[in-house]
Nucleic acid binder design. Structure first.
Lengths: 287, 287
DNA sequence: GTTCCGCATGAATCGATAG
DNA sequence: ACTATCGATTCATGCGGAA
């Protein structure tokens, strides 16, 4: 049985990333501190300085990612002076200058978003899941995240008409045609780029409420067993805990001792439960 | 009874907007041709030229909008060379330079999105609904779009991903039940900034499938009866038809004679049905 | 009149082939 | 090498006709 390595690093990712090997990571997935939040850890980055702050980090991430790997960045801009701040879209432009490809923007629809009422806006129920790559070709295992077909399929596919059995080109000349017969016996369809996931309600004393479903979905989609996953803003270790459970090696970096200890504790405990050889590396203990 | 004015203008909005009075419009809502589409009308704007093409138009829109009015821009970037193109986010930055405030970005989740399978991306199930304002203070009537509890619960349940229901029924079930308890006695809730609406597939001879629900939602939220609504890219007149039905005056501009005639026909017919005085202005007839 | 069921339709994208 | 065209793939919805 292959052992799973979960490496936890305590420190500032701006420093610690430099020690990682180039082209060694299959998937980077992280939810960095949004501007002006978690002010106790990374010093409360001013929205206007956010791009400048993040670029050195994304440069290191570009270096450590394998050519066919993927970087998933979960982020959302804050409201500043009644406007959505532009640091996220500016970051996208700057990262492209850096060499990243902006492959896709998926939506995390938060089904149970934070309650509240404001006079001129509604509750914010979504966050960006920005997908960046080093190359147009990258690893993706779509069949691992297929979902059950909608209810319509039962009735629709019960008995097929003649046109269903052949390829029926669209009348509108869009070049689109359908062959319904291909769908018979299929019970699953590919998902879309809108993910419906509730936020985690169990309070982990971590400001970012990253549900386990989220890293799990991307780890399934973008890695195989034995691959390497990195979260440079580990927090309480959700990504690494999921990766360990799924047989992926992972690295997590966290600056705050409080979170680092929490993550280390959880992941060690899970390693024991999993009955499989798990090595937990760690840097100097934190008190 | 107050008459509703629906003014339809045939021509290029880059020209026709100049004739409109400054500070006269309460709500602008439009879905401009996306880059490289509708090539037969606006000449198929190249993605790289999109910002440059749109800025003169948004400048006019800024002029005609009332200080407390709102501009809702429905748009989505294409994939070019395997990447999401950046013209939309560049447009946001450029419009802010022009004097617009980028108040919010809402998501239109298209429940029945275009089918297809590609090796490195999933089906695109969402579009941007960008909200721009001239001032931090603007008109908004939130209570008009409150969702009945039943509806809300129905929609929420429907939008739970199937995997969630299957994977962890107990958790999902209990979470939902708990929430429901909080809503007892309340009959309406505020919506979020994620709108779940299906595209219209009925044959309208118009490529853009703008569901009536979409303008209706924003017209309710951002205008009152007698207010003025503008759609500079009218298409087959969905926005104006809805505005007329809701007792709002409106202006629609369309460059293509085919769509213009379609819109004019529909809106006249509806005016008769509504039993209320409706004036339909039009420019030179199109054959 | 209701419900049921068949079916065309859509702001799509990729890769291969042709000019 | 670079652009233009073409074929392949795919799923939820609302309409309209049938039961």
């Amino acid at each position: 049985m292959s052992g799973v390595v979960t490496k936890l690093i305590h420190g500032d990712c701006r420093e610690k990333l430099k020690a990682l090997e180039s082209n060694s990571i299959d998937l980077i997935i992280t939810s960095p501190p949004y501007a002006d939040s978690r002010s106790h850890s990374y010093g409360g980055i001013n929205p206007d300085d956010y791009v400048e702050w993040f670029l050195p980090i994304s440069a290191e991430l570009l270096r450590v990612l394998k050519p066919d790997g993927t970087f998933i960045l979960n982020i959302k801009e804050k409201v500043v002076d009644g406007e959505r701040h532009t640091y996220v879209i500016e970051l996208i432009l700057a990262m492209r200058q850096q060499g990243w490809l902006w492959t896709e923007e998926m939506i995390w629809h938060k089904k149970n978003c934070y309650p509240g009422k404001w006079p001129n806006r509604f509750r914010d129920a979504w966050e960006r899941l920005l997908q960046f790559n080093k190359n147009r070709k990258f690893k993706m295992f779509q069949e691992t995240v297929m979902v059950p077909m909608g209810d319509w399929a039962d009735k629709r596919l019960k008995n097929l008409s003649e046109t269903d059995k052949v390829r029926d080109p669209s009348k509108a000349g869009s070049g689109f045609g359908k062959k319904v017969a291909n769908w018979v016996g299929r019970d699953k369809v590919y998902p879309t780029n809108v993910l419906h996931m509730a936020t985690e309600t169990k309070n982990k004393n971590h400001s970012a409420v990253f549900p386990e479903d989220l890293p799990e979905w991307f780890i399934k989609l973008l890695t195989q067993e034995g691959d390497w996953v990195l979260d440079p803003f580990m927090g309480s270790g959700t990504t690494n805990r999921v990766a360990q459970r799924m047989g992926r090696n992972s690295i997590g970096i966290e600056i705050l001792g409080e979170y680092f200890n929490l993550a280390q504790q959880d992941i060690r405990a899970q390693g024991v439960r999993l009955f499989e050889p798990v090595e937990v590396y760690e840097s100097t203990p934190v008190e």
